[in-house]
């Protein structure tokens, strides 16, 4: 979608046109969902967060100045919301562990994280990808976001930089660190430590 369409769509959205909002959702729902899914690693949660992204777009389109592309803005909201969701979930897990200390056994069952299988990964890579996602979940937020945007969405460093408000060199640095950390975690996993 080019700048002209972006501008036309933004103006229509600001006027509250439902057709424009529908077009926006239909155009970018998969992009938003795929990004969120890569970070959240849970299909139902990803759908929920993706909806939240579009709710925020609907409510705050008035504040969108058009400096960046609409897709960049959407990616930014998606990444922020997905990372927030993971933080909340981890907080809940920690509390769950505290509760389980007091004998509430159900909590430990809910905390057992199942393997995540991304629907877009080829069948012969499913198991390896599940291990990679488990390792990815342990990375710091920014490294995780950069890795997902690069690997799952195929964004170049420059565009990731626009999404995350940093320059391309910083993005490349984060990507390098993400790969190094993932390599360490995976080696540890495969050596059975």
């Amino acid at each position: 979608m080019d700048r002209f369409t972006d501008q036309y769509l933004t103006e229509a959205l600001k006027k509250g046109e439902q057709a424009a909002f529908r077009q926006l959702v239909e155009t970018w729902k998969d992009m938003v969902y795929n990004t969120v899914l890569g970070i959240v690693q849970h299909e139902a949660d990803a759908e929920d967060v993706a909806q939240e992204v579009f709710v925020q777009v609907y409510q705050s389109i008035g504040s969108f100045r058009g400096d960046a592309k609409l897709s960049t803005w959407l990616y930014r909201i998606a990444v922020t919301k997905a990372l927030d969701h993971v933080k909340k979930r981890n907080r809940k897990k920690r509390w769950g562990r505290v509760y389980s200390l007091f004998g509430d056994k159900d909590e430990s069952i809910h905390n057992a994280v199942p393997d995540f299988h991304h629907p877009g990964v080829q069948l012969d890579n499913k198991e390896r990808a599940a291990v990679l996602f488990k390792a990815l979940d342990q990375l710091p937020d920014r490294q995780k976001a950069v890795f997902v945007l690069s690997k799952l969405e195929g964004l170049p460093a420059k565009e990731i930089g626009e999404v995350m408000d940093m320059n391309a060199a910083t993005v490349e640095g984060l990507m390098h660190r993400a790969k190094t950390n993932l390599r360490k975690l995976l080696e540890k996993y495969y050596s059975g430590e």
């Binding site: 969902y33 991304h118 629907p119 877009g120 890579n125 390896r128 291990v131 990679l132 690997k151």
Partner: peptide
């Protein structure tokens, strides 16, 4: 494992 996401399709 690091290459396992290469060429992955987009989830809908």
């Amino acid at each position: 494992a690091l290459r396992s996401l290469d060429g992955a399709g987009r989830a809908g």
